[in-house]
Every structure is written in structure tokens, then in C-alpha cells.
């Protein structure tokens, strides 16, 4: 994985739940089927209310988003255990979510799938940056730099090597917890 990524950011507020990340009618798509995985990406964050979020996360007709970094408020990913949520964002091309806090199952699913790096912010970044701002995330320094200001993030700690490896299975094999693939 790259040590630094630079991308426009998409900003959302508190309590973005899994129904807003991937509405329930799209859960018929099975993430382990390649073409359905890709389609899940095209629906990422489509449940956000239009009046609050006039900018579409994935442009109409596209499969991918232009925002590799998502900035959020408190309790990002609350609600369902649907792994479709981090997968939809990952499939859309998101690499990082920086939130004030995460819901437990969403955070765990980010790590288990290796789809997203879930960074905890040290301050309420969703009120300081705007959708479309260009940000640089430095994975080694644990910082996010936007419009000349550098914000320190809480280090990923023990979950980083799991995501670096590509998720739970790859990590478990690398570290000998389960047997290598035959």
C-alpha cells in the first residue's frame, strides 16, 4: 500500500448508518461475486439525504467515486452488520475513512475485509473541511493535510498490519494462525 495518498475528500456528518452507506434493497448483491462487488461500489453512500448532500458520492452512470478519502463525524457506520457497507465503499475506490468515531461492527468489517483504513480523528474534521477539498493522508506520520493545515490522527495501531495484508485471512496466513492456501 502507498504511504501517502492525495485525493479530493467527501465530507459527511454524524451517525451515517449502514442504510445510508448501502441501502437495504441493494443487499441482494453478493460481494464475493465479482460483477456484483463492482455494482455495490456504484451504490456507495447513495442513501444519503439529497438535501443535505447535494453532491453525489458516485457520479451518475459511474462505478467508481473520485473521492478516495471520506471525512465523517461521530458514529460512522452505525446500524447493521452488513459487510456490504465497507465493501461498497472499497469497491467504489475509497481507501480511507477519517471519522470522529466509528460504530463497532463497521470498524471491524473494515479491518476483516481489508477494504478501508478507518482512522479516528483527534478533532471534528467534518466541520473544518469541505467536500472537494484536496487532502493528503500520510500513513506513516498519521496525519491528514488539507489546505495547508496538518491534522494529527490517532494511529491505526494493531489493525494496520491486518489491513495492509489485505484483511483477516491474509493476515492470519502470514502470521501462521491458519494454514497457507493449498
Amino acid at each position: 500500500m502507498p504511504n501517502i495518498i492525495t485525493s479530493p475528500v467527501f465530507v459527511c456528518k454524524d451517525n451515517i448508518d449502514t442504510d445510508q452507506i448501502i441501502p437495504a434493497q441493494y443487499l441482494t448483491l453478493v460481494p464475493t461475486i465479482a460483477e456484483e462487488y463492482e455494482k455495490l461500489g456504484s451504490y456507495a453512500l447513495v442513501g444519503l439525504p439529497d438535501e443535505t448532500y447535494p453532491v453525489k458520492f458516485v457520479a451518475p452512470g459511474e462505478l467508481k467515486t473520485k473521492y478516495q478519502i471520506v471525512i465523517a463525524g461521530r458514529n460512522f457506520g452505525c446500524g447493521s452488520s452488513r459487510e456490504h457497507a465497507p465493501i461498497a465503499m472499497g469497491a467504489a475506490g475509497v481507501q480511507v475513512v477519517v471519522a470522529e468515531s466509528f460504530a463497532r461492527i463497521f470498524f471491524r468489517n473494515c479491518v476483516a475485509t481489508g477494504e478501508l483504513y478507518p482512522f479516528d480523528a483527534r478533532e471534528r474534521l467534518c466541520d473544518k473541511v469541505q467536500t472537494g477539498d484536496i487532502a493528503t493522508l500520510d500513513f506513516d506520520a498519521d496525519t491528514l493535510t488539507v489546505r495547508g493545515t496538518t491534522y494529527s490522527l490517532k494511529p491505526l495501531g494493531e489493525v494496520r498490519p491486518v489491513i495492509d495484508a489485505g484483511g483477516l485471512f491474509n493476515y492470519a496466513r502470514q502470521s501462521g494462525m491458519i494454514a497457507a492456501k493449498g
Binding site: 452488520s81 459487510e83 461492527i105 471491524r108 468489517n109 476483516a112 475485509t113 483477516l168
Partner: peptide, 13 residues
């Protein structure tokens, strides 16, 4: 509650 990946891990182990 857990996600599919954790559940797949349990199915095998």
C-alpha cells in the same frame, strides 16, 4: 453481530 469475512473465518475454523 459480525460481518461475512469473520463469519467465513468461523465456518472454517
Amino acid at each position: 453481530g459480525i460481518g461475512n469475512t469473520d463469519a467465513g473465518f468461523i465456518l472454517g475454523t
